[in-house]
């Protein structure tokens, strides 16, 4: 087993184990902490696969921003958080468990049986992704770049209007 494979297995186990911890935890807050561990594991996977910039972005956005937002929202709904006896699952959960297990099995088999069209051995990997990304935003991907700012504006205004109490 190479070092890379070892790191992959560790990161994957952290990711999946924390994900299981998240969906089975009784308290939403603890679930959110598990979710942060999942995000960290996914960031490690990104870095391992060679997308270092994206790994950092994953930590910045998911752990630094989205997770904190979710934790804040949990803090803002205290009557839900404070009730330890509230059931965590709805009535359909056994059915869902069967279904998602089946989904996982089907996907795994599909992944293993498909012959993926891999890139040629020795194809140059882009380096300095941040620079290339910046250039890409200004040329080919200019539309996503500008649309993103509009999307964020809409999200900001919408969320403020909905969340504020008048």
């Amino acid at each position: 087993m190479t070092a890379e494979q070892f790191v992959f297995v560790v990161a994957a186990l952290i990711t999946l184990g924390s994900a299981v911890g998240m969906v089975t935890s009784r308290s939403v807050f603890v679930g959110a902490l598990w979710m942060i561990a999942v995000f960290g594991g996914v960031a490690a996977l990104f870095i391992l696969v060679g997308a270092g910039f994206l790994g950092i972005v994953q930590i910045l956005i998911y752990i630094g921003a989205i997770a904190v937002l979710i934790l804040f929202a949990i803090m803002l709904t205290p009557r839900v958080m404070g009730d330890p006896n509230a059931p965590r699952y709805n009535r359909q959960w056994p059915l869902v468990a069967v279904m998602t297990t089946g989904l996982a099995a089907v996907l795994t088999v599909l992944v293993l049986r498909t012959d993926w069209p891999l890139a040629q051995e020795g194809t140059p990997v882009i380096t300095g992704f941040a620079v290339e990304l910046g250039k890409g935003f200004m040329t080919t991907y200019i539309l996503p770049f500008e649309v993103a700012s509009v999307l964020l504006l809409v999200a900001l205004i919408g969320a403020i209007v909905i969340a504020r109490e008048e």
Partner: peptide, 23 residues
């Protein structure tokens, strides 16, 4: 929550603006 929300929006803008600044 509102402050966290505006922070999230700015944080994502940063992800777009840093590559721009480098390039």
């Amino acid at each position: 929550y509102i402050y966290a929300l505006i922070f999230v929006i700015f944080d994502i803008e940063v992800v777009f603006l840093y590559p721009w600044a480098v390039a």
